[in-house]
Structure formats: C-alpha cells, structure tokens
Design a protein around this nucleic acid. Structure first.
Lengths: 124, 124
DNA sequence: AATGTATATAACCAAACGGTTAAATACAAA
DNA sequence: TTTGTATTTAACCGTTTGGTTATATACATT
C-alpha cells in the first residue's frame, strides 16, 4: 500500500541527486548497499539513510541474502508521479495549441506568416 | 535559464501538496496571490514563501499589475521532470515485457495458460 | 494627505534533512 | 570461537523547511 501522501514522498525522494543516481543504477538491475555506495564519496550510513527514504517512498524494495540486503527498483510510484506531471504538461501544451489556433486565425490574411515552431523537441 | 540542479529543485517544489494545489489552480489560468491563498487555511506569508519556491524552480513566473503580482504556470521544468521519470518507467515496463516474453516461452506447452494482465490501466 | 488593499520581508520557532563518527548487529568463513 | 564483512542504529551537528506574527512597502482610492 502506498503512503498517505504518496505523491509528496515520491517527489521528495526524487528531489536528491544521490537518490536519483541510485535509482538510475537500480534500473540496470538489483544491487547491494555496498555496490550502490561505491560511486559516491559518502559514508555508508548516509547511503543507508538515502535507501530508507527510497524505501519509505516505495521506490525500492529490499531482499535478504546472507549479510546482504539487495535493493531493487519498484516503479509503481513513478507511474503516479508521471501521471501527475503529465497532466499539467498536457494542459500547458493544450494552451499552446489554443494560442496557435488563435494566432493562425488572427494572421489569416498576413502575406507571409512566420512558421512558428512550438515544440522543437517534438515529443509525444 | 534553469537552475544548476534544476531537476532537484523541480522535484522538491513538487513535493508539497500545497504547492501542487497551487500549480493545479494555475493550470486553469493566471491568478493573484490572494486568489491562490483563498482555498488554504494558512497565512499569506506562508503562501508567499510557497510561491517563491515555485518561482525559484521556474515552475511559475510573475507579473506586475498595480498592487497585484499575478502568477502563471511555466511548464518547461515539468517537461524535464516528466522526461526523467518516464525514462525509468519505460525501463521498468521493458523489464516486464521481457518477463512476459520469458513466461510465455516457459509456459509454451501449458494446457490453458492464464492470460496475464500486466498493465491494467493500460496507459501509453 | 490619509486610508485601504495587496504583497513582501524580518524575526522567530520546531521539525526534518543530509551528512558525520562510533558502536551494534547479523551472518560467513577460518 | 574468533575474525572479517555487510549493514544498520545512535547520537550528534549545521542547514533547510514550513509555518507563525508583526512590520514594511507599494499602489489605488478617497
């Protein structure tokens, strides 16, 4: 079950570059705490705390193999976060589309209307 | 220009329900500070601080009309945030697809393989 | 010029954050 | 049973966060 305010804890967990890097690493497969800590010049307890934040946000889950506690990515909360962001991104784009339509209408009788390139990256 | 670690400040700005509600309101159009504050049982300075956080993250921009400082949504940082999240969401889905393929292969000779419904919401 | 309205700033506070070092725990191997 | 390795917990520390109240600023109206 996701935490009461799961969106807040998800975003908060994502708001740290170390934690995002850990998630990036985990997207390539499970890893132990020591493996995850390797790239950082940071104490083990610091990493342990970051992992706890990620775990609290259900962004990772942890196993138990001898003395190792392997971590793996859990993407369900990412889905909710993505949905939230997309909602407003889409609204913003819709607004631009309406503006485009309006400008097109207004400039209907212009001699050479400048071709507007709205979304250069052209995604989705 | 976006801040040095713009992803962190974007996610951090999104990690508060009041600020997300403000963005939701702004997605329906510009609004003054007092209008934005209305739904909340919170002092004006508190709202003012939230707006400053959103502004620092470039999620909103502000105008000047007499004694009003109207806020409007700026979706560019949402795009970056969305892209980041989508990247890992997609990876996670790809992993599931591979698992699906594997399971399909393994169960090839089963009598009546149960139809697995992976992504019930079926988005994108 | 005085008053009212919209907003921001200052000063303060408790709690959370992100790190540290030192010590405890859990298991494996010798 | 001792030693080594992996990880967590405890205690601490400075900074940031999210709120408060009181005060200042900016502009409009009378």
């Amino acid at each position: 079950m996701l935490a009461p305010d799961h969106l807040s804890s998800t975003f908060q967990a994502l708001a740290d570059p170390t934690r995002r890097a850990i998630l990036a690493r985990l997207s390539k497969g499970e890893a132990s705490v020591t493996e995850l800590a390797a790239p950082f010049s940071m104490s083990m307890p610091a990493i342990s705390k970051h992992l706890k934040v990620l775990e609290r946000a259900s962004l990772i889950s942890r196993g138990k193999e001898a003395q190792w506690r392997p971590c793996k990515l859990e993407a369900a909360p990412l889905e909710a976060a993505s949905d939230w962001v997309e909602q407003y991104r889409a609204m913003w784009e819709a607004r631009f589309d309406r503006l485009d339509a309006y400008l097109k209408e207004v400039q209907e009788k212009e001699v050479k209307p400048t071709t507007r390139k709205r979304n250069a990256k052209g995604k989705r």
